[in-house]
C-alpha cells in the first residue's frame, strides 16, 4: 500500500521531466531555429540511434572506458586517500601534487597526453581516471582523518596491526564519506568521458554527438544529449542503491523515508 505522500514522492521526478520537455517544446516552437529541434523531434531520433549497430558499439566503447577509468581510479584513490588521512608524512608529500592537479581541467591535459599516448583508449581512459581520482582521494582523506582515535586504540588493544587497522577500521569507518566521493566521481567520469571524446574523436558517444553537430543533424545531437543524461541518471540511481545498502548502519534513521509533509 502506498500512501498519497509516497505516491507524490515517486511521481515527482516524472512530472519534473515532463515539465522540462514541455518547456523545451514550447521554447523550440517559439524560437523557430533550425539548430534547436523540438523535444518531440529529438525523442523521435532516439530509437534510430539505439537501433543502429554502429552507434551502439560507440556507446558501449564509451561505457567500457568509463567503467575502467572509474574502477581503476577508485582502486587507486581510496587507499591513497586513507593513507593520507592517517599519516601526516604521506599527506605532506601528496598534498602539493594534488593541489597542482586540482584546478586544471582534466580535458585540458588531453592534447599533451595524446602526444604521448595517441588518440586511443588509453588516453581517454587516463583522462577519466584523473577526473575521478581527485574527489575520491579528497573524500577518502577527509573520512580517514575523522576516524575517532579511540576506535583505533580499541583495535590496537585487540591486536590489530597498523595495516589491519587501516583496512578493517579506517576503511569501514570512512566508508560513508568515501562513497560520497565515489558518487561525485561517477558523475565526473561521465562528463570527462564525453569531453575526452569531443577532443579526440574516433569512437564513443561523444563522437556521435559532435559528428552530428558538424553535419547539422540537430535532432541527433539533442537525442544524444538525452541519452547521455539518461545514462547519468541510471548510473547515479544504481550507485545510490548500492551506497545506501553499504552504509545503512550510519544513516540516522532506518527505513524511514524522507518526508516533506
Amino acid at each position: 500500500m502506498m500512501s498519497p505522500a509516497d505516491l507524490a514522492r515517486r511521481a515527482a521526478p516524472v512530472f519534473a521531466c515532463i515539465g522540462l520537455l514541455a518547456i523545451w517544446q514550447i521554447a523550440s516552437l517559439a524560437l523557430k531555429n533550425d539548430s534547436f529541434p523540438t523535444a518531440i523531434e529529438a525523442i523521435r531520433a532516439i530509437p534510430d540511434i539505439l537501433g543502429d549497430k554502429e552507434a551502439l558499439i560507440n556507446i558501449l566503447a564509451s561505457l567500457r572506458r568509463m567503467a575502467i577509468g572509474f574502477g581503476v581510479a577508485v582502486l587507486f584513490s581510496i587507499p591513497l586517500g586513507l593513507l593520507m588521512g592517517r599519516s601526516r608524512a604521506v599527506a605532506a608529500f601528496f598534498n602539493p601534487l594534488l593541489m597542482i592537479i586540482y584546478p586544471v581541467p582534466k580535458a585540458a591535459l588531453m592534447p599533451i597526453i595524446m602526444l604521448w599516448l595517441g588518440v586511443g583508449d588509453i588516453t581517454k581512459t587516463l583522462v577519466i581516471f584523473l577526473g575521478v581520482s581527485l574527489p575520491v582521494i579528497y573524500h577518502s582523506f577527509e573520512g580517514a582523518k575523522a576516524v575517532e582515535e579511540k576506535m583505533l586504540w580499541s583495535g590496537a588493544a585487540m591486536g590489530l596491526s597498523p595495516l589491519q587497522r587501516l583496512v578493517r577500521i579506517v576503511l569501514p569507518a570512512a566508508l560513508p564519506e568515501i562513497l560520497t566521493g565515489c558518487r561525485t566521481g561517477l558523475v565526473l567520469a561521465l562528463i570527462t568521458m564525453i569531453t575526452s571524446e569531443m577532443i579526440a574523436r574516433q569512437s564513443g558517444a561523444g563522437n556521435i554527438l559532435f559528428n552530428a553537430l558538424d553535419m547539422g543533424q540537430y535532432d541527433t545531437v539533442f537525442a544524444m544529449i538525452i541519452i547521455v543524461g539518461a545514462m547519468g541518471i541510471c548510473l547515479d540511481a544504481a550507485f545510490e542503491r548500492i551506497r545506501a545498502r553499504l552504509v545503512r548502519w550510519s544513516e540516522p534513521q532506518f527505513d524511514l523515508p524522507l518526508s516533506f509533509s
Binding site: K150, M151, S154, A156, A157, P172, L175, V247, W249, S250
Partner: peptide
C-alpha cells in the same frame, strides 16, 4: 611498549565500531 590484548580499554566515548 604498545597496546596489547592483556590490557583492555573502555573509553568514555564508547568507541564502538558503528558498522558492526
Amino acid at each position: 611498549t604498545g597496546p596489547g590484548p592483556d590490557r583492555g580499554p573502555v573509553f568514555q566515548e564508547f568507541a564502538l565500531f558503528p558498522w558492526k
